[in-house]
Design a protein around this nucleic acid. Structure first.
Lengths: 126, 126
DNA sequence: GCGTTTATGTTACTTTTTATAACATAAGTT
DNA sequence: AACTTATGTTATAAAAAGTAACATAAACGC
């Protein structure tokens, strides 16, 4: 992990700071966690400690909610993203050629932003 | 102020976090503040809130102490640095030519690391 | 329309964290 | 030997944060 990534993933912020940085209430932030959307670490005294990455995620949740998505939809967005991340990881692990990788990334780019619609039985992307 | 500078100057970390990041006790951190070496902000409830810049400063204090400097010496180091900063600021304000600025920086470079020795009456650098 | 779900507010109570202040002390200095 | 310095320790108060339960407006589903 790079120095920057490490710093961004350090759990150093208490919920009070997160409230200010995101303009959300503690209730909201804890609810998003309850729904599995953020996973802050805990310190020895059981207080939630957030990283900069957590902040980004919470701000994204706030944006999505503001755009009318509900929690389930946001969970789907994150799940999809994670699957993609994992797949890219695997590709890298298998040391595919640069050309193959470029093609893969292109496909992913075309599909970017696609949201799963679990109420539509016809929406079953590959 | 650049985006980066702004983020580094945001007071978002409680003293508990600072303790972990610096491996110092709360007592030590507060003492350095008492001696004017760090100036954390306070939140509405009077709790100290530290920025990344504060952390850097505290780690520097720790290093200096580890190298045998005492608080007064460290105060002198910081004061000198601050004076230098202010002077550079003024030079910039007066819009001196690039050549003059280069020369100034060179002089400062030559003088870098010079510690005031307040017990030596002959040490009175300009 | 009406019952249900969703996201959030509110309240009560407990634990943890932090603040301040005073006293204690080992090591270094004079 | 007395003094200073940096830090430890202890006591006490206040703030922040945790959990849990009940409340509710707005959206949703039928």
């Amino acid at each position: 992990m790079s120095e920057k990534e490490l710093r961004r993933s350090l759990s150093v912020l208490p919920i009070g700071t997160v409230m200010k940085l995101t303009d959300l209430t503690a209730r909201q932030i804890r609810y998003y966690e309850e729904q599995g959307l953020v996973l802050p670490k805990r310190n020895e005294g059981n207080r939630r400690m957030y990283s900069l990455n957590d902040i980004d995620r919470i701000l994204e949740i706030k944006d999505f909610l503001g755009e009318g998505l509900n929690i389930a939809a946001i969970q789907a967005v994150f799940a999809k993203r994670e699957a993609k991340r994992k797949q890219e990881q695997e590709s890298l692990a298998k040391s595919i050629s640069d050309d193959e990788a470029r093609e893969l990334l292109h496909k992913e780019f075309l599909n970017l932003g696609g949201l799963a619609d679990n109420n539509n039985p016809f929406n079953n992307p590959m």
